[in-house]
Design a protein around this nucleic acid. Structure first.
Length: 863
RNA sequence: GCCCGGAUGGUGAAAUCGGCAGACACAGCGGACUUAAAAUCCGCAGACCUUAACCGGUCGUGGGGGUUCAAGUCCCCCUCCGGGCACCA
């Protein structure tokens, strides 16, 4: 084979990513300054480009590759545009998988996690992602999580972290509590087959509801976020304006329902207080206090209530709350409508939720669909009190739920008023008379952060066994011996030597050295909190840490964060639209109120990329359709893999992974490599030729180049449709390849050659950084290609000198005529009419109208 | 039920403002090169009708209506797919 080898070496070297990519990776790795941001005193404009940090599962998947290829292209582009770019990466490193792996492999969670991080960091380097590893953040290390504890204490001081006993979501698979946001259709977000149970537990919460209104209001002005995400967050917050109205439990029918003898009242929440004269019953949730009070002296009723509670529980666990059949029971008692003085029956119904509003409603069958249905079923009276504003209109069928264009009827002093006006006045009336008020309710609940797991941030609280509760300088001390640790005792370090078992309960509770401590207030014996924090705490503020990752004295320095924030572009999957993205908005507002930062929102712009699917389904192990990035790199190289991820679909849409497509990109890169290598000698000469002597080929190629520059530049600043940017670069390469004979014949000067190939290389740099770097060096470029200046589109060079004008007859294409660019309307019209095909088409007919759209087309209306 | 997306060739897609539908690719077919294959290069390619072939014609962006000289794009109605919220009072 020596002969063959000789032949091979004489041929121009073929595109070989396996050789090019590791070479540049090593050179880039050796230069720590390459991807580093300048300090906050930089004269350049800053650009904070952020991709969502991954959970270190051990392997990158294609979703990651897509996410980071988008961010990396943007970061490199911004560098080339002269910005001071911060492009960091980190690890969302706490969480249950590490404990499961520990069980399975008998490896300590920390060891397992850190090994995964090392492997994934290596994969990212191999992909050529431009992260500044000097600012890397790993959430499971005490250098990071101590600040979770610090924030927890700050929030505790402000009453934003608190403990309460409540119904919580319990995943039997995770053996821990879940936040509401982590329960999807009654199932665990990590175990879609596992039904989440309800348990009564005392847990720590963050008072996110305190910020509900601000979280909602800011959404209106967050133009840089997708409307979809904003809508999802609005729905999740679920703000509802309405009125609270007290109905007194009627004395005549129920002399005494309260043991204290005090008269009971039922407070209902309604968004339609204007319909209250039509209320014909009051409906209570089975768990409502009054329902329980009534049941206390009525065994039959008590049994029915119990049944309803079970039914609601079962439905919630089945994730199918809407499906239970509505039914209720008449208690035989009455309540008094404070507006009309009417007595209405009190019912208990299975569809009333105890945890929304007040757990009680007024039922207005005439003007609410659900109430109407219920009233039909039990023959409860229906009373119309809302009619169309236009009295001439026929009375609409019931239930009539309109609010706009409707007025009140048979509603005392409010009769004839518009619904909207009546709502306002009636709420004010309730307040003035002490039986109610306008109010706002939210769907959003406080964020439960306690987890009965080991691998998370320890909560920095102790329970004093003396019940002691005073603490140095801290006013925030609860009764019952809950004592916050002083910040000087942070971090509370997670013990590393621990046996992971499948037993329930918090694993930390079994580590005596951890649990047993002394009360920082009285010095007496105390027990540590053994729950850990939800991992969403870690990811709620990690991107602030990047700005000052090594700070040992504070979570970060305010001036650094104020320079970098808000994040200019945040990129990640839409699956975090609610969870992470609402928690981190909350956290930002808390930090602002703590005086730590100036911004109220973390990210000016958010981009949610689509999923990567294969054969019509999301890639997953169970479907067996997972494509490994490592395989793709081995076969086609990192450049082809990441470029395909950008080419196959616009980034916001789902992407169907087709390996043939990656091969196609690889072929394209090979073509670029062949052409650039072939002409690199001529192109790297530093000569210039006068423009007046340009050959037709030069003009054509320069025109193509500058049109492509304009197109790609525009895509970066606008829609981010990199699929069309890459298509444009392909067209440019096709033009160059088509001019190969002319170039070989010497029709393109070295100066033009240099401009064309250097331009092409710079255009490729954000998408295929390795090849671009290789060619940049080959073409005589200095240093890192993505630190070279992005080319400017020259409009003069880009301009076409000939335009093609389609000529239509009645909107149908007849012919395309060619004209010199800039031809006026008359010339275009004349050229169109002079065409033989056009003549043939209009022969014997009358042209009734001629439409000429300058530079676009001609349409002849003929009859 | 309510609120967002989406539906374009065999496939991924393009058409940013109402102005040539299908750019750019993939797969396919044909050719060149090769002993052969791979690789590479060149060409063809929405469907249907017509033709020996050219030429030519009709239809065509989920379905139906409309506005317009002109509609994938705007308006009305409907179907299907994906996502979010949901006995939320």
């Amino acid at each position: 084979m020596p002969e063959l080898a000789k032949n091979e070496s004489e041929r121009p070297e073929r595109y070989n990513p396996a050789q090019i990519e590791p070479k540049w990776q090593a050179l880039w790795d050796a230069d720590a300054a390459l991807y580093a941001a300048e300090g906050h005193d930089s004269a350049k404009k800053k650009f904070y480009c952020l991709e969502m940090l991954p959970y270190p599962s051990g392997k990158l998947h294609m979703g990651h590759v897509r996410n980071y290829s988008i961010g990396d292209a943007l970061a490199r582009f911004m560098w080339m545009r002269g910005y001071n770019v911060l492009h960091p990466m980190g690890w969302d490193a706490f969480g249950l998988p590490a404990e499961n792996a520990a069980l399975k492999n008998n490896t300590p969670p920390k060891e397992w996690t850190l090994a995964n991080i090392a492997a994934m960091r290596e994969q990212m380097r191999r992909m050529g992602f431009s992260y500044d590893w000097a600012t890397e953040v790993t959430t499971c290390l005490p250098e990071y999580y101590r600040w979770n504890q610090w924030f927890f204490l700050k929030m505790y001081e402000r009453g934003l972290a608190f403990r309460k006993k409540s119904k919580v979501n319990w995943c039997p698979e995770c053996q821990t509590v879940l936040a509401n946001e982590q329960v999807i259709d009654g199932r665990c977000w990590r175990h879609e087959d596992t039904i989440v149970e309800q348990r009564d537990l005392t847990q720590w919460f963050f008072r996110i509801t305190e910020y509900a209104d601000e979280l909602l209001q800011c959404l209106d002005t967050m133009d840089g976020w997708p409307e979809k995400v904003r809508t999802m967050q609005r729905n999740w917050i679920g703000r509802s304006e309405g009125t609270l109205v007290d109905f007194k439990v009627s004395e005549s029918a129920s002399p005494q329902v309260s043991e204290s003898g005090e008269q009971q009242k039922i407070t209902v929440f309604t968004t339609r207080v204007d319909t209250i004269f039509g209320a014909t019953s009051v409906q209570l949730a089975p768990e409502h206090a009054v329902a329980r009070a009534l049941a206390a002296c009525d065994l039959e009723l008590a049994a029915e209530i119990e049944e309803m509670i079970e039914e609601q529980k079962a439905a919630r666990e089945a994730g199918d709350v809407g499906a239970i059949e509505k039914h209720g029971v008449d208690t035989g008692r009455f309540a008094v409508n404070p507006y009309s003085g009417e007595q209405v029956p009190i019912w208990i119904a299975n569809y009333i939720l105890a945890d929304y509003g007040t757990g009680a409603i007024m039922s207005v069958p005439a003007h609410d669909e659900r109430d109407f249905e219920f009233a039909q079923k039990y023959s409860i009276p229906v009373k119309r009190v809302i009619v169309p504003a236009n009295a001439a209109d026929e009375l609409p069928e019931l239930p009539y739920t309109a609010e706009e264009g409707a007025v009140l009827a048979e509603s005392g002093q409010w009769t004839g008023k518009s619904c909207v006006e009546a709502q306002r006045e009636m709420a004010a009336f309730a307040k003035a008379n002490g039986f109610g008020a306008a109010t706002v309710t939210y769907r959003l609940k406080d964020w439960g952060v306690s987890r009965q797991r080991y691998w998370g941030t320890p909560i920095p609280m102790v329970y004093c066994e003396n019940g002691h509760a005073a603490m140095h300088g801290s006013p925030a001390v609860e009764a019952g011996g809950v004592v916050p640790l002083p910040v000087t005792l942070l971090p509370v370090v997670l013990p590393e030597q621990i046996e992971i078992t499948q037993q329930g309960g918090s694993p930390l509770g079994r580590v005596a050295e951890f649990v047993n401590t002394t009360c920082p207030a009285c010095g007496g014996p105390a027990r540590r909190e053994t729950d850990t924090m939800d991992t969403f705490v870690d990811s709620s503020w990690y991107f602030y840490r990047y700005a000052d990752a090594k700070d040992a004295a504070a979570p970060f320095a305010t001036d650094k964060v104020n320079y970098w924030f808000p994040i200019d572009q945040y990129i990640g999957g839409v699956e975090h639209a609610i969870l992470h993205l609402i928690y981190s908005r909350f956290w930002t507002k808390v930090m602002r109120d703590l005086g730590m930062i100036a911004n109220s929102e973390p990210a000016a712009r958010l981009f949610t990329q689509g999923m990567v699917i294969k054969d019509g389904a999301k890639m997953s192990k169970s479907k067996g359709n997972v494509v490994s990035p490592d395989d793709m790199i081995a076969r086609y190289g990192a450049d082809a893999t990441r470029m395909y991820a950008l080419f196959a679909a616009p980034p916001d849409r789902d992407l169907d992974w087709q390996e043939d497509g990656v091969a196609g990109i690889s072929r394209f890169l090979g073509r670029v490599h062949r052409l650039a290598t072939k002409y690199s000698e001529a192109a790297s000469q530093q000569v210039s030729a006068p423009a007046s002597q340009r050959s037709a080929t030069e003009e054509k190629l320069l025109r193509a180049l500058h049109q492509t520059i304009a197109k790609v530049t525009e895509d970066f600043s606008g829609r981010w449709h990199f699929n069309t940017s890459i298509a444009a670069v392909m067209i440019l390469v096709n033009e160059i390849a088509g001019a190969e004979a002319a170039m070989d014949a010497g029709e393109v000067s070295p100066a033009a050659m240099g401009e064309i190939f250097r331009g092409l290389t710079l255009l490729l740099a954000p998408f295929a950084p390795f090849l671009a770097q290789e060619l940049w060096a080959e073409l005589g470029g200095e240093g890192a290609v993505f630190r070279a200046a992005w080319p400017e589109a020259d409009a003069e060079l880009a301009r076409e000198n000939e335009i093609e004008i389609p000529v239509q007859a009645n909107g149908k294409l007849v012919v395309v005529v060619k004209l010199p660019a800039g031809s006026d309307e008359a010339a275009v019209k004349a050229a169109a009419m002079a065409d033989a095909k056009v003549q043939a088409r209009i022969e014997g007919k009358t042209v009734v109208k001629t439409i000429v759209v300058q530079g676009k087309l001609v349409n002849l209306v003929v009859k």
